[in-house]
């Protein structure tokens, strides 16, 4: 079992680091009546600052749904989410927008870069939208980190998948958000490229203390995480501390057998 002990899987209060996202009793039902699908059935979780949290689970277990709700993209049917001290489930569109600018970064499976902008403009987009300028040196450092130096003038269509995801990562980090959400960031990449991208994410957590939540199917990816949440049928069934790929696979096996 996890280091946090048997009681609340969230492990609230049992760690010294503060939680930047606090979710309580989340449920989410899609549709109504006969066709209603319960994607989440009561999830409570704390996302700790400066850590990389991985969310794993079988297909359809509610990983994406959970992430969307934590990030304020979707609203829970019941339950609460506090992000950076603000209750977000009741926020209006304008406040949510402000919250996103300040506290949230996204990395998508399909990169979601703007095809008409070059790499540099794509990276700077969140700041441009917020009407801000990058801090001195931060942009260059970031570009150095993600290794895009010579590709800044290229449009997404002229970049490989891995390069595109590097742009997307830089874009997520450029505003130094409180938390970065990534839904299967390597889901669309081959395995060696995946490795590089995961290294990059890991590095951002270590170097900048960037809190990151990542949904993944890949045990190798989860092995990079400080903490792994296992989801099944809309509930968190288990939580692992930093583990290697083998341990993670075993845990998943065990789940499947149940």
């Amino acid at each position: 079992m996890s280091s946090a002990g048997g009681s609340p899987l969230s492990g609230a209060g049992s760690t010294t680091t503060e939680a930047v996202v606090v979710a309580r009793d989340l449920t989410r039902t899609f549709g109504a009546g006969d066709t209603a699908v319960q994607a989440l059935r009561g999830v409570s979780v704390d996302i700790e600052a400066g850590k990389l949290t991985a969310v794993m689970g079988p297909s359809g277990s509610g990983k994406s749904t959970l992430m969307h709700i934590l990030a304020g993209l979707d609203k829970p049917t019941s339950g609460t989410v506090e992000l950076a001290g603000t209750e977000i489930t009741t926020l209006g569109d304008n406040d949510l927008t402000k919250l996103r600018r300040q506290h949230i970064g996204f990395i998508f499976q399909f990169f979601n870069l703007l095809p008409i902008l070059d790499a540099r403009e794509n990276v700077l987009l969140p700041l441009t939208i917020a009407g801000e300028k990058p801090e001195d040196g931060w942009f260059d450092e970031l570009i150095g980190q993600v290794g895009l130096g010579d590709r800044l003038k290229h449009r997404p269509a002229e970049l490989s998948g891995g390069q595109q995801q590097r742009v997307a990562i830089a874009r997520a980090l450029v505003s130094r958000p409180t938390v970065v959400f990534a839904d299967e960031p390597t889901g669309n990449l081959d395995s060696s490229t995946s490795g590089e991208i995961l290294e990059l994410l890991r590095k951002s957590v270590e170097t900048y203390g960037q809190t990151t939540v990542m949904v993944t199917h890949d045990a190798r990816a989860a092995a990079m995480a400080d903490r792994i949440l296992l989801l099944a049928d809309g509930v968190i069934v288990r939580e692992l501390p930093r583990s290697d790929a083998h341990e993670i696979l075993m845990a998943i096996e065990e789940l499947n057998r149940r």
């Binding site: 304008n94 927008t97 996204f106 979601n112 703007l114 095809p115 939208i129 505003s175």
Partner: peptide, 16 residues
């Protein structure tokens, strides 16, 4: 649509 949605996730307001 996807482009607009992405802009929104990056913090663009409806007004923008």
């Amino acid at each position: 649509m996807r482009e607009f949605a992405t802009l929104r996730t990056l913090g663009a307001s409806r007004r923008q």
